[in-house]
Design a protein around this nucleic acid. Structure first.
Length: 423
RNA sequence: GGGGAGGUGGCUGAGUGGCCGAAAGCGCCCGCCUGCUAAGCGGGUGACGGGGGUUAACCUCGUCCGAGGGUUCGAAUCCCUCCCUUCCCGCCA
C-alpha cells in the first residue's frame, strides 16, 4: 500500500508506475474521495471539539445550576445526533478510500527495465555452463519413472491433477536438498530458521498483498476463514505485523522450509508434464526486514544467497532482472533465478527474489524505531532459496549418466549417508 | 467443549463515569558529574490523522487503553458480541 499523502503529492508518479506494470491505478477516484473525506473530517472534528468543550462545562456546572444544565443536555443531545450522522457519511468515504488504496500497485524502482513481458527481462549474469552429454539427455520425468522415484499416477489418484509424489530415494533426495538449503542459509548466511503455521488468517494475506487482488490464486479453508499458505513469505512476513521493532535488531533474516499451495487457476495447460507446476510443492524461503536505506543492497545479497545453493550443487543457471511489465503488483524490484534443465533443454524458474520497499510494511504495519526517534516502516524482502521440485528436476537432468542413473553431487552426499548414485 | 481471571504506551504495570492520553518504573534522548566503564543527579520522551506555519522547529484540533457495537451531555472505567492470553476441568495425537 502506498501512503495516501504520497498519492496526493505525486499522483503522476503513481499513475506512471502502474502504467509501467501494465496496470491502472484508481488515482483520480482516490484524490476525489480524499478531498471529500477531508472536508467531512474537518467538519466532524470541529463539531466534536465543540461537543467536548460544552460537555466539560456541563460537568462542572451541573450541580450549581440544574435548570441550565438540563437545557444544555438537550442541546448537546441534538449536536450529538448531528455528529453521528455526519460521521457515518465520513466513514463511508473512508472505507471506499481504503478499498481503492489496496488496489494501487507499487511503482517499480527506477533501475527496473521498461517492458511488457518475458522477452523484455534482462539477463544480468549466468553461472556455469550447459552440461555436455555424448548421449541424448533424458527428461527428469523419464529418469524418475525409470528409477522409481516419482509416482505421479498415484498422486493423481489420491488428490487429482497437479499433485505429485516422490518415493524412496526421490523423497529422500528432496529432503536432503532442503536440508542443504537450510544449512547454507542458517550456517553460512546468518538466517534464523522458523517453522511457521501453514494456514494463515485473511489479515496476513492482505498484509503481504496476496489479497484482495489475488484471492483466486490461493486455497481457502472455509472453517475459520483461513488460507493455505501460497509461500512461507506470508506467515514469516506477518510475524512482526503491528509491531515496532528495535532498530538495532535490523536487519532481521529468517529462513523457512514449508509446503506451498497454489490453485494455479490462471495457468491451464502450461507445464502439465513433469514435476514442475503443482498445487502443492515444497520451498525454502528467505525473508528479510531491513532499514530503508539498505534494502536495494540487501536485495543483491539475497539473490547471492539463493545462487549459492545452485553453485554448491554445480547447476548451470542465469539471473534475470525482471522488467516492469513482468513484475508483481507489490514488488519494487525483482530478480528471477532460472536453473538449466538439459533434458527439457530449457531454463526453469527456481527462485524469485524481490524487494517491496515499505509497500508490505505499510499494509502489515511493521515499523522500527532507532534511539528516541519516531517509528518508521521497515523494508521487506523475500526470495526462494530454492523451490524444491524444479531444483530436483535440474539436478536429475544435469547429473544423469548414459546408463540412466543419477550421480549425487558432492555437497549433497553428507545428507544421504554418503550415497553417490541413484540407480 | 464447560467454568474462572485477564488484555492499558517500545516494555512492565496503576487506574471502577468528567480533574485521564493516562501514575510509577524500565527503556530511550539531552545535559551534569565521575580522568575509562558502571553507578548517580536533573530534564525530556505515546501513536495515527486533519488544519495552520518561513512546510523545519512549533502551534492547534480530532481519534486511539484487544476489535466492533451500545448506554450517557460525557466511557480506559458501565452493557453486549467477537478475538486473543492464562488457570482449572473434560477431550486428544
Amino acid at each position: 500500500m502506498l501512503a495516501l499523502s504520497f498519492i496526493r503529492e505525486h499522483p503522476e508518479v503513481v499513475r506512471a508506475g502502474a502504467a509501467r506494470k501494465g496496470e491502472e491505478a484508481p488515482v483520480d477516484a482516490i484524490l476525489e474521495l480524499d478531498r471529500e473525506h477531508r472536508t467531512a473530517l474537518a467538519e466532524v472534528e470541529g463539531m466534536r471539539a465543540e461537543m467536548g468543550r460544552r460537555s466539560a462545562e456541563l460537568g462542572k456546572s451541573a450541580r450549581s445550576e440544574p435548570a441550565a444544565a438540563d437545557q444544555a443536555r438537550q442541546s448537546l443531545a441534538g449536536l450529538k445526533s448531528r455528529i453521528s450522522e455526519l460521521d457515518a457519511k465520513r466513514k463511508l468515504l473512508w472505507d471506499r478510500l481504503e478499498e481503492l488504496l489496496l488496489l494501487v500497485p507499487n511503482p517499480p524502482h527506477q533501475s527496473v527495465p521498461q517492458g511488457v513481458g518475458d522477452e523484455d527481462n534482462v539477463v544480468v549474469r549466468t553461472w556455469g555452463e550447459r552440461p555436455h552429454f555424448d548421449f541424448q539427455p533424458r527428461t527428469h520425468y523419464d529418469l524418475g519413472e525409470q528409477l522409481g522415484i516419482f509416482d505421479f499416477e498415484r498422486a493423481v489418484k489420491i488428490s487429482g491433477s497437479r499433485f505429485a509424489m516422490l518415493r524412496g530415494k526421490g523423497a529422500r533426495l528432496e529432503r536432503a536438498l532442503s536440508w542443504l538449503m537450510l544449512d547454507l542459509a542458517t550456517r553460512d548466511h546468518g538466517y534464523e530458521e522458523v517453522a511457521p503455521p501453514y494456514m494463515v488468517s485473511r489479515e496476513c494475506m492482505v498484509g503481504t498483498a496476496n489479497l484482495p487482488k489475488f484471492e483466486e490464486d490461493a486455497f481457502h479453508v472455509v472453517e475459520g476463514d483461513r488460507f493455505l499458505i501460497p509461500t512461507a513469505e506470508v506467515p514469516v512476513t506477518n510475524m512482526y505485523r503491528g509491531e515496532v521493532l528495535d532498530g538495532a535488531r535490523l536487519p532481521i533474516r529468517h529462513v523457512a522450509w514449508t509446503p506451498c499451495w497454489r490453485s494455479e487457476a490462471g495457468a491451464p495447460g502450461k507445464d502439465t508434464r513433469g514435476y514442475i507446476r503443482l498445487h502443492q510443492f515444497s520451498k525454502v524461503e528467505l525473508v528479510k526486514f531491513v532499514h530503508p536505506e539498505e534494502s536495494l543492497a540487501e536485495l543483491e545479497s539475497l539473490v547471492q544467497d539463493a545462487e549459492s545453493v545452485l553453485q554448491a550443487l554445480g547447476i548451470h543457471y542465469r539471473v534475470r532482472l525482471m522488467c516492469s511489465g513482468d513484475m508483481g503488483f507489490a514488488q519494487w524490484k525483482k530478480y528471477d533465478i532460472d536453473a538449466y534443465a538439459p533434458g527439457l533443454d530449457r531454463f526453469l524458474e527456481v527462485s524469485s527474489c524481490s524487494v517491496f520497499g515499505d509497500f508490505q510494511a505499510r499494509r502489515a504495519n511493521i515499523r522500527f524505531r532507532t534511539g528516541g526517534g519516531r517509528p518508521e516502516f521497515v523494508h521487506t524482502l523475500n526470495g526462494s532459496a530454492l523451490a524444491l521440485p524444479r531444483t530436483l528436476d535440474c539436478l536429475l537432468e544435469t547429473y544423469q549418466t548414459a546408463a540412466g542413473t543419477v550421480v549425487i553431487p558432492e555437497a549433497l552426499r553428507p545428507y544421504l549417508g554418503a550415497m553417490t548414485e541413484i540407480s
